[in-house]
Every structure is written in C-alpha cells, then in structure tokens.
Amino acid sequence: MSTFIQQLINGISLGAIYSLIALGYTMVYGVLKLINFAHGDVYMVGAFMGYYLANGLGARGAQMLGMDSDGVVARGLLGGGAMEPSLITALVVMLLAMAICAALGVVIERLAYRPVRKYSRLTALITAIGVSLLLENGGQVVFGADPKFFPELFTKQNIDLGGGVSVNSSDIVVLVIAVALMVVLQFIVYQTKTGKAMRAVSFNLTSAKLMGINTDRIIAFTFALGSALAAAAGVLVAIRIPRIDPLMGILVGLKAFVAAVLGGIGNIPGAMLGGLLIGITETLVVGYLSPTYKDAVAFAILILVLLFRPSGLLGSVAQEKV
C-alpha cells in the first residue's frame, strides 16, 4: 500500500507536468484549430533556457554574446555564484525561462503561423511540423546534441510521510508549482478581459472580431501563455530528472498531446485532467508491470480514446473551450 501511495504521488507530479504542456496544445487549438506540433520543442527550449540561466553560458557563450564573463547572466545564477540553490532560485530560473519562451511562442506565431493562416489547415499543420524540425535541429546545433545535466536548483531531500511512505521534496515542489500555475491560468482565462476575449475567439472568430476584439493580439497572447507554461514544465521536469537534450520534447510533447486529446482538445480543465491521468497511468504501469511499456501507455490510451470517445473525457459534456 505504501508503495502504491508513493507511486501515486510520483504519478501526479509527472502528470502535472504533462498537464502544463497539454494546456498549450489545447489553448492554441482553441483559438486557431491548429495542432501546434512545435509545442513539445518549446518545452525543450524552456528546459535549456533554465539550464543556461542556472549554469551560465560559460566563457565561450559569454564571448559570443559580447558580455563580460563576470556578468550575472553570462555566468548564470548558480554558476556565477549570484544565487545559492534554494526554492527562490528555482522560481527565478523558471520565471525567466517562461518569459523567454513566451517571446519565442509569439515569434513562432508571427513568423510561421500567421502568414499561412489564410490557407488550408493542412498548410498550417505542415508548417507546424516544419517549425518543430527547425527547433529540434536548431537545438542540436546551438545547444549541442549531447545531453546536459541540470544543476540542482534547490536541495532535494526525502520527506517521510509516515506509514512507510516517503516522497522526494522535488515531487512536492513540482506539484505545488504546477498547481499554482494552473490556478493563475484559470484566473486569467475566466476572470480577465483578455481571457474573455480568448474564449470569444475560440467560440467564433468572426463574431469576436465584430465585438471589437483584436484577434491577432489575442492569438499571439495565447501562444505566449501556452509557451510560458511549456517552459515551466521544461524546468520542472529537469528538477525531477535533470538530464536534458534537444530531442526531449518529441516524446513528452506527444504524450502531452495525447493528454489534451484525452481531456477533449480545446478544453482547459480537460487538458489538466488528461495530463494527470496519463502521468498516473504511466507511473503505475512502470511500477507494477514493466518499465518497457513506459512510453507505450500514452499511445494505447490515445487509441482507446479515439475508438471509444473521440471528443475526449470532457469534450462534449462541458463545451467550454479555449
């Protein structure tokens, strides 16, 4: 029983990360009816931004940017000794990585998707695959193809919950941060004027325009929001398992996409739920069946969803979508 609870906590923590990424797929789908295949790679870029922010660009990187190698950014928050490993450091690194990826998301939308918006959806889909390949290969060139090891942002420890259950503090931190981000997102989407506009755009683009909504700006904002969450997921994942590489976004991106479909693509609570379910199932399968099936779980779920409930768990019940 104690192992089960431990596995469950692991699964929820992993699932919360999938949820964060799935939210980006679902929100962009909501406003553009586009599956943004590059989204998983934005998550990868987020992890690398976190890595460089924490570790520093190194002497060569600093020279390339023409910066004083003593500069805080050039040396990194930890590498330059500007900050000690702590929760605050983790938060600062995460927030900065989020800001960078939000900008990246806006640039991708502006340069790649907006110009093809007037053409067919297939054109947009192919463009998305192109952006994805660009980020993956560009990542290998810029970051190097070999895996990097993320520094410890805060000191991890095992917490004894009693009854033989002990969890790693990183799982708790990841979970708490992910939930906090989702609460903030929920607030933005349902309580702010911009969130209202996002929902209007997802319901009916033409009507949204006729209300006086600057739909281009709302679409860009949606990309910023989704990409920031993906970057947060990238940093959080590295807190759990500190090995990152330029192709890390492919599989995780696909799993998060499955999570979005499972919850009902376009549906925000659905993406949160879908991510959790995939994370929990995956962890339990690895724990009780065999680690061999780790990556097959999500795709088995995808096939089942497509067969039995193509609209996803929350897709047709609550039609609320963004």
Binding site: F203, T206, S207, G212, E320
Partner: peptide, 22 residues
C-alpha cells in the same frame, strides 16, 4: 481591421447571428 472599425462606430449583426453559444 475589423476591431478598429468597431471602435470607429460600425457594428454588425452578422448572417447566421454568430452568437456565442456557450
């Protein structure tokens, strides 16, 4: 763009009504 025209004082009830069903 449409949103600027709405700001200038043009409004439309479109064909098919276009209400936000949800």
């Amino acid at each position: 763009p449409t949103h600027q025209l709405v700001a200038r004082g043009i409004s439309m009830s479109p064909e098919g009504r276009g209400v936000f069903a949800n």
